[in-house]
Design a binder for these strands. Sequence first.
DNA 1: AGGGAAGTGTTATAACATAACGTTTTATTA
DNA 2: TAATAAAACGTTATGTTATAACACTTCCCT
Lengths: 134, 134
Amino acid sequence: MKNKLTKKQALTKNQLLVLKALRKAKQPVGAYELLDQLREHGLKAPLQIYRTLDQLIELKIVHRLESLNAWTLCCDAEHDSTPVFAICNDCGSVNEFFDENLTSNLAKISKKSGFVADRSIIEIHGRCDQCEAS
Amino acid sequence: MKNKLTKKQALTKNQLLVLKALRKAKQPVGAYELLDQLREHGLKAPLQIYRTLDQLIELKIVHRLESLNAWTLCCDAEHDSTPVFAICNDCGSVNEFFDENLTSNLAKISKKSGFVADRSIIEIHGRCDQCEAS
DNA sequence: AGGGAAGTGTTATAACATAACGTTTTATTA
DNA sequence: TAATAAAACGTTATGTTATAACACTTCCCT
Ligand SMILES: [Zn+2]
Ligand SMILES: [Zn+2]
Ligand SMILES: [Zn+2]
Ligand SMILES: [Zn+2]
């Protein structure tokens, strides 16, 4: 698989626009919010956003947060394992973690029941350390 | 906390209707599909479904599958731990599992980063054993 | 140059979810 | 049991998220 640098060089105009908007955000962003921000750059229709997000997910540059209907940049790590997202109820920040044990636990559970996993979603809601401290 | 039997005795008409529809289904069901099925019993508006589903979730009788925008009955087990849902891409069936190790791993990950967890979502997509066999 | 794959733009529509308001039912307790 | 509070209910309107269908363009490979 190509590394992220290589992938970035191949990005299209729309992909770069969406990526830039996501980078600017400190939180996951919804598709229509992205659309609003990118209207000034010529994007007009939801599909332009949804298609681009799908492409960026395919490139493993972006993740979709299922419980938020929103998207966020992948942390810099090149990873094949399942990310764990910690989502703060208060400030909306999201952190991406990896855990070997957890990944292998998931695999075991699947295996035990004969289920062949494809894609795993782990999203934890709660309060981040900063919000918890204040 | 009351057990499920006690809870069931207290269910309202709408709750019973939705519950019955969910029981009949072999897969998670969307809110509007429930609405369609329950029109003949007098339910007319989406809100009647959404409210009832919220109540049933509060009662821990029903779970929402975030990655499907659909709801399913809780397996019979009375559980406080985080359920793991295995969702088959082919047949749409969903199985609910629990895993001590996984639950404690999740707790550890949270703790390490100072995050205080509230609600965890674990949904695995793939192929169930039956579909895999065929 | 020819042909296929990926990307793009646009209009229309589908699918999912909540706001706001008032009424009815049920439970609590004076 | 009558007053009251809390929960559930019904209805209309609206907001939010996502995809279908179709035509056109760009890029890459042979
Ligand atoms: Zn990632
Ligand atoms: Zn926070
Ligand atoms: Zn359950
Ligand atoms: Zn299956």
